[in-house]
Every structure is written in C-alpha cells, then in structure tokens.
Amino acid sequence: MNIKTHDTTDTLVIAGKSYRSRLLTGTGKYKDLDETRRATLAAGAEIVTAAIRRVNLGQDPHAPNLLDALPPGEFTLLPNTAGCYNAVDAVRTCRLARELLDGHKLVKLEVLGDERTLFPDVVETLKAAEQLVADGFDVMVYTSDDPILAKKLEQIGCVAVMPLAAPIGSGLGIQNKYNLLEIIENAKVPIIVDAGVGTASDAAIAMELGCDGVLMNTAIAGAQDPVLMAHAMKLAIEAGRAAFRAGRIPRKRFASASSPIDGTIG
C-alpha cells in the first residue's frame, strides 16, 4: 500500500526558485570545515549562509575556505551582513558579496542594534532594504517579531521576511507564537524564523505555526554532536511541516474518548 505522506509540490519558493528543504543553516561556529560540510549535509540544507570578511593577510591564501567545503554549484549561498550596525555597511557588504559570487543576487540582510541583544536596528534595516531592492538584490531580511514592520519589509519588496523567535544564539526557543502567527497569516512572501531555536522541538513548533522555514546556526553548531543535531533538526522541520499541513485538532478543556461509547458491556 502506498501511503502518500510526502507532497513533492510542497516546496519553499524564494525569489522564484524552489527548494525541497525548509531548513536553512548557518555555517559559523563549527570546529572545522569538514564538520561544517557534514552537518550541512545531515541537515539536508540547500540554502546556507556565509559571512563576508576581510582576508587575513599573511596567512596562507591557499588554505581551504568555506566555498571549497560548500561549493556554490551545490548549495545556494546566502551571504549575510552580520556584524553590520548601519545601512551603509550592510549595503556595501551585499555589493561585495555580489561581486564575490559572480553577480549572485540573494542576500540575507541583518542590521544589528547592539552587541548585548543582537536585536535588529529596524530603522537601519528598512533603509538598507529599500536601497538593496532598488539595486536589484533579492533580500531575505532578519527582523524583529513586529507584524507591522514585517508587512512593511514585504511591501518594500523583500523576497522573504525572517523574524526572530528569540535572541540570536540564545537557544530560548519560540518566545512569540502569537506575533509569529500574526506575521505568517498576513504574509504574501515566505516567513522564515531566523534565530532563537535551541533544540528540535523548537523547530517543530515554528513549523507547526505555519512558518515556511527555519534558519539556524548555533543550535546545530553548538550542540555536543552537531551532525546528529543537524539530523534531528531535519526531522523536526519535516515533522512540523507535515503536522501543519495535516491540521491539528482543536485544544479542549475536557476529555474526548478515543474508543466508541456504543456496545460497551455491562
């Protein structure tokens, strides 16, 4: 018997391109590039983030680099603007990324507000998003969980809006279900939870809410066994998505018997 549990048409579409995986992964904080690659493969991720940084002059220029481990032909690279605290630096970083990756247009915009919270500076984020969209970039934007702002970023022309679930690297899980739901229900572009996931159940909850995907880094790279956690996250994303599509039962205050009442003895 063939039970249809997997719909191959249920794909994540970003900027016109379809992806089977709804788990997007970061590439920071791994022990080495080998672990980065093994965890990325275990996660089944097709979209992977990368940071743009100055080369280390004086070090071996021929040492293996990220793009050797995760070649752009095999993965969709998502260069980020991590570490930028204003729109000017974020736009510069995206232009460098586009040059680096031969005209690649897809970028992850994040403009941070301060080092303690790593919360986004939403004013600078809006400014940068406008400039980048006008400059022809496909912008996936990290933002706070504010539904009004999420809508504005969509209206500017961002191809995906990525609200945080909790602070970056905190592992606190989904702290803002109702804000996320409000964002999801009003969105016309993919909503991807970016930041805050700690373990597999957090990823499943995000997907059960109806998120289109989850982007995570620390939860995998910081686990004691990153490759195993990457596998767990892959399963959680798939389980959460299937549960969302299946449609959960309503919550009730009282019991509802699972066995028929009719025909009981006595």
Binding site: L33, A50, A51, I52, R53, N65, L66, A221
Partner: peptide, 27 residues
C-alpha cells in the same frame, strides 16, 4: 567595488583605502 574584470587595469593611488574580502562561515 572594483569588478574582477577591471583588476588588471585599475591603478591604485596614494591614500587609497582597499578592502579584499572573502566568504567565511557565519550564521
């Protein structure tokens, strides 16, 4: 940005601020 195709013909000048960047792991 100085596009790759122009690296050979782009002469630097006194005081120029040059950045050379690459991709590294990040979230």
């Amino acid at each position: 940005i100085v596009p790759r195709s122009q690296h050979g013909g782009y002469a630097l000048r006194e005081g120029d601020k040059v950045e050379i960047v690459h991709a590294i792991g990040g979230g």
